[in-house]
Design a protein around this nucleic acid. Structure first.
Lengths: 211, 211, 211, 211
DNA sequence: AGATAAGCGAGACGGTACGTCCAGTCTTTAC
DNA sequence: GTAAAGACTGGACGTACCGTCTCGCTTATCT
């Protein structure tokens, strides 16, 4: 799904091929237009025709560089949403887990990112490539960061070392995505608190909770 | 969204109105056809035209009773998937919470119900009525049942009484739906175990876990 | 096409048959409703459903008594438009031919009858029964009347006796219907004058015309 | 109504516009298909879906170039039926008027053109654009030609100069269209003879008729 | 300088499904 | 038996996008 890299990973510095070079202007215009629609109206208001028109670009140019409109959407999404919180070792499991979770939760609740992401996850149900791209380019990086915190917590003895770190991540992110996708309850800040409490101490009533 | 009930809730026993009665045959054929497509190919392979043809019914008949193909899909889904586990008071929080969760997890993993549900949640992102119907007719009932178990656990002193029961449900179902929708990891039985462990005792390494 | 006579030709006076008698109210309501639509909006704005609703009648009742909506329309048309000018022997070909032609021309020009008739002739192109009914019940009677005048004119020696009377009628009515159906020119009164002039004296310039 | 001309009247020779050029193949296939249906089964057996399928063309392509199926039909009709008789000055009113009339009469009687034309005139009753297109593109040209003959006849002193030429045309074409549309009598060749006799000399019995 | 090789905007194309509409028929209960 | 109510099949309507295609033109490198 990842398509049309502006600068390929192991890029030779400007290895020029014959023919007219790709228009950087067009690439940006397409992504901008897609971003705007995706974040304001959601994925399925996003039509190739609409993006082309808005970007002042021909449909063919879109399909020359992306295999489908879904691919454009994922690219647009990932590029538009910057990673927010750098992972730092602060010695405190609680903060290292809760902080990034809270940042994401607020991002989904307070900005159009939530709607956009939800509509992409939705699109992923019928388009495996979208699902894949989303996992690789959005979920993956965010989980990887959180996984570091989990690993450090284990090393510090703050978390059982026999528990699969991946599952721990699911316990944190699961409820957030669940609310995002089903909308049965709002994404309150408090959710993260309870989440981490449960994770660390359980919710049984025996006073092991922090003050 | 709930449309065209076979027998209304407080239904008088066969109060016949003038006019040709609704064809029970057509109703069933439509729902059967929709179910078949939905469970085998997912929501967006489901077309009104296809259902009509498969059911030997005219498109107009579908639209007479359901406002959109999405409404048909939800009806078909809910009617096809029967509640599996009755809620009983067995005195054990662990089992009362884990058992229904496990049943659902396996249902989503081992049968086409998972795909169907995922595609409906997806459809809900762009169709608020689908989202609503899904909450009311699928998520709601299942959460209500689990909520009883949570309430009993609080009464027995097995769960902190100051924690919002709804949030507890999110901690249980969230990770399951998260995996279902994003597919980043399979729906292993073990997930439920860790889930409930965390919920009750936390995952900190202090031996408070059950043998 | 002629259907559902209110009182059959050789009608026995109220020979009561078993069962509920036909509702005269329904019959009239249907024809009235059809008339209203036909004359105001034309034949193809006339729908069976619309007539039924307007008449407070069920569609089945319409189709029990008329074979198609076209049949209803023809009935409605013929019943609504009364014959206007009685044929009388006044000794003057010119008046005997021109007067009824002028009456018809004005009827088509100044009342909704024109539009209704045109739309029925149109319907007749694809429905032979409509065409037939129209010939039998509308064109026929009017031609028959005019034919009497033609016959009298021949007897009086005012018209060549070797000319087919039917063709004479076509010369009179043809131009009127032509303008009615194609609308390339309005139905001016003067048309009839020229028509009859030509018929009797020709349009060659030799002074044989009346003062 | 006139749509999508193959080559505009005052066309610059091959002024290429940007974009994929219109498919001549599709244009022809559509018109051919429409012609075939129109002439064999009449206008209201003509469906956009049918034409599309028969022409191996998508429905959208039809609607891109014609505003309605009626517009396609008129185009198909006019293109399929070539003008048959050139107007020439032969000095003889009788022939100059009777010949084209006879050609048209036979065309309507002996070929499917009659049915097709009748069904288009019919369609014109409910679709003003069809009526208009028909007047402009079919009736008009044929009347214009005949009008020249009438004008010449006036100049030669063979026809009264105070009579509206347009009305003369109605006297000729009216009866033909009348029979075509109502079908009360066949389109015999003899009709034209009587028609022109009447026009020139009248049908009064005074021996002014030609041998 | 010319040949060659893309990229690009424009916009037409075949296809598929949408949701609507109406004809004419059928199936009930009510009179 | 007839009426009213109203559900049913069937099939066309015109619209909206999809992803592909074919143009003429532009912008580069390669010879």
């Amino acid at each position: 799904m990842e398509s049309a890299p502006a600068s390929p990973v192991g890029a030779e510095p400007a290895r020029p091929r014959p023919g007219r070079p790709r228009s950087e202007r067009a690439r940006k215009a397409i992504l901008d237009a897609a971003t705007e629609v995706l974040f304001n109206e959601g994925f399925d208001a996003l039509t190739a025709e609409g993006v082309a028109q808005r970007a002042g670009v021909s449909k063919a140019t879109i399909y020359r560089w992306w295999p489908s409109k879904a691919a454009v959407a994922v690219d647009a999404f990932v590029l538009a949403v910057q990673p927010q919180v750098p992972d730092r070792d602060v010695g405190d499991v609680r903060r290292e887990l809760a902080d990034p979770a809270l940042v994401q939760l607020r991002l989904y609740r307070d900005t159009p990112v939530g709607t956009a992401l939800a509509s992409l996850v939705a699109a992923g149900q019928s388009d495996p490539e979208v699902a894949d791209a989303l996992r690789t380019r959005w979920l993956g990086p965010r989980r990887a960061q959180a996984l570091h915190a989990v690993t450090r917590a284990k090393e510090r003895g703050q978390l059982r070392s026999d528990v699969d770190g991946e599952v721990v991540l699911d316990l944190i992110f699961g409820p957030i995505y669940y609310r995002l996708m089903t909308g049965h309850a709002p994404l309150d800040d408090s959710l993260v608190g309870v989440l981490v409490d449960a994770l660390l101490h359980g919710l049984a009533p025996d006073g092991r909770l922090p003050a």
